[in-house]
Design a binder for these strands. Structure first.
Lengths: 236, 236
DNA sequence: CGTGCCGTTGACGATATTCAAGTGCAGTGG
DNA sequence: CCACTGCACTTGAATATCGTCAACGGCACG
């Protein structure tokens, strides 16, 4: 699904109304976009950290354990600006991988400093950080307290609302390019168990999920099932 | 265990060497300390967000589910400065509770802005944010991928190293005021299973834990057991 | 026409939860 | 001084949830 206006601008303006010069400063960044093929890494574990904005596509942050177990610790969707302080890191312990064919912008520390000199942009960027932290906090609750089906239901609610907030979901429909293996890596479950849990959600008519598209016939019911409370996303 | 110098200064100076005026700006904050009794809330769910620095004691961030299940999503130890952008939040979906009798400093948004005008302090504060995010990311891996005993081992390694970085742990000893119920709320397990898992760690001589004190006879062994890799803490 | 990835299914086993009862200890008040 | 209470922790037995192993089908890609 296409985003009506530029997703990064839409995302930044969810809490702060930007001036024309603010918008220009952001748009100037897009002159150096970077395309990344699905499955390729933007940042490899061990490299230096970088700040990104997602113009198009989905990005996953992955952490690898010594024995090969793997966890997706964050998902970045169109419009997200993330890892604002990462340039301080000399060697990352995570990697960033494109879930779909994606377009991103790298933001250097000097560019970031200039953006932060504009008060409204500074505030908008603070909201970005706040959102990332709130989401990862909510994911902790998800992994710690919810059952398998609840975790998946919660994740799908979050994805739907995050996409909707930049105009990329409506009428209960949105893209959902995550494979079941990836859902497993997000939710801390096995592929097999994700498959079974999804079947349960389908059989209870809570979701329809096929060929990379998700349909939620009754969002309220899915939210209740997944003990989902939207306020952590700070949508207005 | 007492911190040799002021824990907040020690913490901020782990990555950045502060000037005398930087240190004065921080010390000025301590004129308005706030004492909180063990078990009391600093911030209640629904209130406005605030920025804090921990002078003394341990603080937990808690999230409550609709059905009463509860998760601790962060622990703040002496020296930590946290929730730097929280003043934007009108109503929190979490609460902050003192684990032990504690002393904290509230930092207002205007104070914060003044601190951020000093470049070294700004950088030190960025490191604080980076650390919080890295820890919550690592906790996601913990909940998603590790077994019960591994989770607890990992948590104890983290606590030990975080305390040691501000001089509050040495020779394998540190404070450990968390009850087993709290460990359960951090690790997403039940109290009962935490009790059994701790017994396993004790029987394998990986830890000695009693009366609020932790002893780790062989840190390397405990780290290996818990698949702990310290680099996410960015200690030098 | 293979090959690899994604998803599904079944049988079985491991891990963690639930329920219930009981201990030790610190603090309280008669 | 001693019962009484609440809290932290422990233990056992039964159960549920989730993981592991293995096999199979469909589909896209070269």
């Amino acid at each position: 699904m296409k985003c009506p206006q530029h997703p990064v601008l839409a995302h930044l303006q969810r809490h702060v109304r930007l001036s024309a010069s603010d918008r220009n400063a952001i748009e100037a960044l897009f002159q150096s976009c970077r395309k990344v093929k699905s499955g390729r890494e933007l940042i490899r574990s061990g490299a230096a950290g970088k700040t990104f904005a997602v113009v198009e596509g989905w990005i996953a942050r992955e952490s690898l354990l010594l024995d090969g177990r793997q966890q997706i610790t964050a998902l970045f969707l169109p419009g997200d600006v993330f890892d604002l302080n990462a340039e301080l890191i000399a060697d990352c312990d995570y990697s960033l991988r494109a879930v779909t064919d994606s377009t991103v912008v790298e933001i250097s520390r000097s560019q970031l400093r200039r953006l932060k000199d504009q008060p409204r942009l500074d505030e908008a960027l603070c909201w970005e950080e706040l959102e990332q932290l709130a989401i990862s906090t909510e994911w902790l609750v998800n992994l710690g307290q919810r059952s398998a089906s609840e975790r998946i239901a919660h994740l799908l609610c979050e994805i739907y609302l995050r996409l909707r907030s930049v105009g990329m979901a409506r009428d209960g429909w949105c893209d959902m390019p995550l494979t079941q293996s990836m859902i497993a890596e997000v939710t801390g479950l096995t592929r097999v168990h994700v498959s079974r849990s999804l079947q349960r959600l389908r059989s209870e008519e809570l979701i329809h999920l096929e060929r990379g598209r998700l349909r939620i016939p009754d969002l309220v019911r899915l939210e209740e099932f997944g003990l989902f409370e939207a306020n952590y996303l700070h949508l207005t």
